[in-house]
Design a protein around this nucleic acid. Structure first.
Lengths: 180, 180, 180, 180
DNA sequence: CATGAATGAGGATTCATTCAT
DNA sequence: GATGAATGAATCCTCATTCAT
């Protein structure tokens, strides 16, 4: 990310602020531009695709996820580490309506995003393997399956109310434990 | 479903056959009409809205779900009944890409759909209450929350492969059990 | 008009009754058919074009206009005769939203309509010529111009409220008198 | 009317030129676009609705009407003032097929149109009140009724030929005078 | 670099009329 | 004769993206 001229930086921040007030699934670049007081061209300059804009909007959440995944990997108790990671991931995805799309996308616009995603998955792998080794989770789980499961629970919560989160998270965590 | 003239019935079946080959989320009535070899107006006559067409496509799956819910309610073992219903619901929703939308829609085009949905939810309520009374599931589950959870698991399976179904279903079922 | 089978006569009357409740300018033959409980084809059989239906709807008004034109031609005072005809024509056109179209149309669907229109214009000509001969109206008026003027006043009343009728009629009648 | 970029101004003028050759009552924005050699979107950008385009087409006529209404209000003889205004209004409405619609529309797209219409009606009110005070017209006339009457006479002239204008205008003016 | 006008394919929907049943 | 299903041109309008200014 090269240094930006101050006006360009202001435009960029402006665009992001406006975009944050929109539903990620129905982002209109023209609307964002108008509301941000810039031309459409400017939005396209900063964000060549809608996905690039969504990535930028999720940057903070992605960083938080990385931080969490590292803390989870450092947890002494592997089971606690996994629960910490899954719970945080779920909460972050619910707070940031575009994060699921960024995480699942096979293609990333920004290199930084690709790198952070890779690091998150690495830490998550560490967490999961430790938990499995400790017998804290079923043996047939993979990082992909678990990621999808978190996305599924996110979907379930979105169909209801945020108050459903604790229950559905708990159901998932309980379900992951190995059967006696 | 009033009796249709034979030509109308043929058109209708034709349209449904073609529509079945399309992704429910991106159905274009114009495309369906062209591929079915009928005029757009014919599609609109049979299905005034896209949702009406999606409902019609899901009719069989909806009937199967009703049948299953009744069988589940008749199960001697309440826990088995619940597992039967949830597993079947999940499988049916995965087979029929529009069923989730039909089930979740607050508005129904066809009266028959509204009635079937109501009966399904009634049977499901019976099943869930029996399971709860028997101590086979957590007490804080509701029909809505469980329905959303099934939709969430459906979502998770779709993100991966159909082979993930048994695992994710088992995780859900295990997670629903009351904690000691 | 050949004798109609009783069911056909019933259909026809039915269609006319329903059509009368619609705005003439926005008649949908399909809507009329549905509301009348008959097929579109039946409406088309009775009334090959929308104009044919509008003519049929105006039949009574047209008869009344003929009757009035004859009474006007028989008036001893030519000025009174003209005023009678113009006032009645205006009122009838305001009561029957399709009458203006029928009167102005160069083509008539039904022979009876063509004949009645011709007779009306003949009587009107008699009335106007008598009034002109008596010096009760300007000399530069023609049957066509006066007919158009009535249509214009009809239009003016429709832009406001029916209560404007007496005033605007009076303005027209006063304006037609020869200037001293 | 904010300053337009030169290319935008060219498009706008182009669209207006083409639209002027069409009957206002049957304007198709797609046709205008094609004939003007621009995309549909361009027409919609300049004129979000058909009414907006019709307003723009009538801008000059509306200005002329405002100018006339002011001159009429400044006439020393109130009767002459009224005759001047009514005659000019009628002629302008006949020249501009969309002016009647603009004047009668309760909603205006452009603020400028709303303002000009308000000023016209204000001047007209002045003219009418002066004429009434001078005993030059009937006392039961209102600005609305007179406006409708002008529209009615416009309608009458359109049903015949432009040559009917002087006669019908004179009939109207004579009819407005108070009866002795 | 920023701007925002222009593009135009794309998709939804209606309705007068025909014609198979 | 009656029916109403089918037609499909016609119209409306949107929006992601490009490119002249």
């Amino acid at each position: 990310m090269a240094a930006l001229r101050s006006d360009a930086a202001r435009s960029r921040a402006n665009i992001l602020d406006v975009a944050r007030t929109h539903d990620r699934a129905t982002l209109r670049l023209n609307d964002v531009a108008r509301e941000a007081g810039v031309g459409v061209g400017t939005v396209y300059r900063h964000f060549p695709t809608v996905h690039a804009l969504i990535e930028a909007l999720s940057a903070d959440a992605l960083d938080a996820m990385l931080e969490t995944s590292r803390r989870a990997a450092a947890e002494p108790d592997p089971g606690d580490g996994l629960a910490l990671y899954l719970g945080s991931a779920l909460r972050l995805q619910l707070e940031d309506g575009g994060l699921q799309a960024v995480l699942l996308s096979p293609e990333d616009e920004a290199d930084s995003v690709r790198n952070v995603k890779r690091e998150i998955f690495e830490s998550f792998t560490t967490v999961l393997e430790a938990a499995r080794a400790a017998g804290a989770v079923r043996a047939d789980l993979t990082v992909d399956r678990l990621s999808h499961l978190v996305c599924g629970i996110e979907h379930a919560v979105r169909l209801g109310t945020p108050e459903d989160l604790p229950l559905l998270l708990q159901v998932m965590l309980d379900g992951l434990k190995p059967r006696p």
